[in-house]
């Protein structure tokens, strides 16, 4: 049986499709017995779908640095 910490890590990876099958099975098994992780997993998955739904956009770090440089003389 894996620890809750381990379960959370797998769950996070799974949100980005980066958890191998075996790990996902371990997570599923853990969730069967662990209420806390079951709740966490549910919410975490929800967060992923909210982020997808919102069609988030952001500026890259280099674009932000550029912006900062541009406003610097005015500060």
């Amino acid at each position: 049986m894996i620890s809750c910490e381990e379960a959370a890590k797998i769950c996070n990876k799974a949100q980005y499709n980066e958890a191998p099958l075996l790990e996902k099975l371990r997570l599923k098994l853990h969730i069967l017995f662990c209420n806390t992780c079951s709740k966490f997993s549910k919410k975490n998955t929800q967060l992923t779908s909210l982020c997808d739904k919102a069609d988030l956009r952001c500026l890259s770090e280099s674009e932000k640095v550029e912006m900062k440089e541009k406003i610097k003389p005015e500060l």
């Binding site: 988030l56 956009r57 952001c58 500026l59 932000k64 912006m67 900062k68 406003i71 500060l75």
Partner: peptide, 14 residues
């Protein structure tokens, strides 16, 4: 203003 880019750039961009 020195914190504007970090705090609000993405929000405003969206």
């Amino acid at each position: 203003p020195d914190k504007w880019v970090d705090l609000y750039a993405d929000y405003l961009f969206n």
